[in-house]
């Protein structure tokens, strides 16, 4: 059973500061030419931001294992949707025979 944790206000403010810095960073980096790495960097920053929102603001860090599994399943099913969709459409032009 998950414990009822009261997180200090300073933790929330620190998390907020990190999120704001990352927001500035992602906009700034978009103006640099990194070639194929531009979308990779942008999405990596988004994943980091989303992760700390889930872990701290949404208290996943202090949640039960069962809640973590359910949240993880969302990412897993989303992965199936994206990967199978792309593996279909991007390979339709392939002619092997």
């Amino acid at each position: 059973m998950s414990q009822h944790v009261i997180v200090p206000r300073t933790t929330y403010v620190a998390i907020y500061a990190v999120l704001m810095v990352l927001t500035g960073l992602t906009t700034a980096v978009a103006f640099l030419d990194l070639g194929f790495a531009n979308p990779v960097v942008a999405l990596s920053i988004a994943v980091v931001k989303a992760s700390i929102v889930v872990l701290f603001f949404m208290h996943m860090r202090w949640s039960s294992r069962l809640t973590m599994v359910v949240a993880g399943s969302a990412i897993f099913w989303l992965g199936i949707m994206l990967v199978l969709t792309m593996s279909d459409y991007t390979t339709r032009g392939w002619a092997w025979f």
Binding site: T27, A30, F31, L32, D33, P39, A46
Partner: peptide, 12 residues
């Protein structure tokens, strides 16, 4: 996720 995907495509 929407912000980088919609606003930050090849801004450079």
């Amino acid at each position: 996720f929407l912000f980088p995907l919609l606003y930050l495509v090849d801004r450079h």
